[in-house]
Each structure stands twice: as C-alpha cells, then as structure tokens.
C-alpha cells in the first residue's frame, strides 16, 4: 500500500511547551491546519513554507516543511 504523501509542520517554544513535529497530508490549506493547532493563548505567529513567509491560503504540497515562527512585539527600553 502506498504511503500517503506528507509535509512536515514544526512547532516550538514559546508557542507550545515542547517542540512538536506534525506530519500533514498534502492538499489542504494552511488556514485549516492552523485552526487545529493548540497554541498557547496570547501568542501570534507567522508561517514559513520552505523558508518563505506564507499566508494561510497556501495549499500544502508533498515535501513541504512548515515552520511556525512566534511574533513578539518590539520594545525600545
């Protein structure tokens, strides 16, 4: 039986308590995946697909590596 085509999503601190790697099926939109993620409250993030910033309308392909990058507001002093 043929193994399903997959992509990899990586979540790390501080979005979650412990680093997490998830296999994703290809052929879904990132927006749908994001809704299922259990990210800590109060935190924002951007998605990198194969090293490039992407919006949620991206259609996941086989072999994609997707990173969730936390966004922390900047300060001066």
């Amino acid at each position: 039986m043929k193994e399903p085509e997959t992509a990899l999503l990586i979540l790390d601190k501080p979005l979650v308590d412990h680093k997490l790697e998830m296999r994703l099926p290809e052929g879904v939109y990132l927006n749908e995946i994001v809704k299922t993620l259990k990210i800590k409250p109060g935190l924002s993030f951007v998605l990198l697909v194969n090293g490039q910033v992407s919006d949620g309308n991206y259609y996941v392909k086989h072999g994609d590596i997707i990173n969730c990058i936390p966004q922390i507001v900047g300060g001066l002093y």
């Binding site: 409250p41 109060g42 990173n67 990058i69 922390i72």
Partner: peptide
Amino acid sequence: KDMMGWAISYGTSGSVKFNHDSGA
C-alpha cells in the same frame, strides 16, 4: 503568566531570531 510567558522568559530580546527568521 500564561499570556505573557514570552516576556517573563526572555523579554523582547528573545524575539531577535524569530524576527530575523520571519524577515521582520
């Protein structure tokens, strides 16, 4: 403690690599 964990652990200087990696 839950909502501002990022600030408690490293403050804004903990965002340097994140912001670099996301092109900010």
